[in-house]
Amino acid sequence: MARPSLRTRSPEEQAARSARIRASWLLSTPALILLTFAAFGPLLIVLAYSFVAPGEYSGVVWELSGQGWFEVLFTRDIFDDTVSLAQAHLSIFWRSASLSLLTTLITLIFGFPTAYFIATRPERQRPLWLFLITIPFWTNLLIRTFAIMEVIRNEGIVNTVLLNLGIIDQPLQMLYTYGSVLLGMAYVYLPLMVLPIYASMERFDFRLVEAGYDLYASRLDILRLIVLPIVKPGIVAGSILVFVPSLGAYVTPRVLGGGNNMMLGNLIELQFGQGRNWPLGAALSITLLIIVACALVFYVRAANREDPHG
């Protein structure tokens, strides 16, 4: 290796060096612009909105106010001015969290065997199975959600079939329930769980399973001690990919949940729309961001913790 520091750089070298530096800045410009205007910028605006007062009809009045943040958790009685916890908000937080966790769990329960199935097919069949998994992505989310609605509504396919078969004599109320939102979300996010698990399963050396059997491991031992630890990165990635958008889900709870199954995304939309309370909406948005960040940190830490058998 040459050691340029031992001698002075020639002007040509200087020029080449600064050209390189200029080029690297130039090359990063698109990414920097994107980050500034698409990520940090809007986030700062939202953050700023959460600390000002709401406007009369919409928008904000530019004066410092903690009202938005106050209303995230508390409500002031309009008659006697007493402060109490905002029960409606708390139940929406809880519903969002529980629905997202359940969605993650359900997609994991169905996604893991699916990924395992695909990864154990002969190599030239796998692209076909993966293709089948990705087909739902071809259709707009809204249309897919309405399709589910068509299936489970009172006059929908399921109820019609069950009624005609005489299994039930009144349509089952499936639509506009907690369950219907869960069903819709699990359906929508399932591919996001399957694909990363498949990616790590595909690299899994199935000869290790044989080695496990040879060393007296039962089927359950093999799953627990060999397959799961090795494909864990895929499970972690899939869970994050499902949990994060679930928490902010908007379309699915709106269409399949009706008015009673509002989630955080719907609450936020409400504040910016009919509620005309932009600071509260902004504060709720930031709250959602914080919940996601906390959940991720907690989850990744838990997933990376070494086995106690260590």
Binding site: L208, E210, A211, G212, A217, S218, I230
Partner: peptide
């Protein structure tokens, strides 16, 4: 295989990559 008192040294070794040397031997 897990009920036979017979063990195999595999051509590919098939060591468990997520375990240490000692953990592999203890398996």
């Amino acid at each position: 295989p897990y009920k036979r008192p017979v063990n195999t040294v595999f051509q590919s070794y098939a060591l468990f990559p997520h375990l240490t040397v000692a953990q592999n031997i203890a398996f």
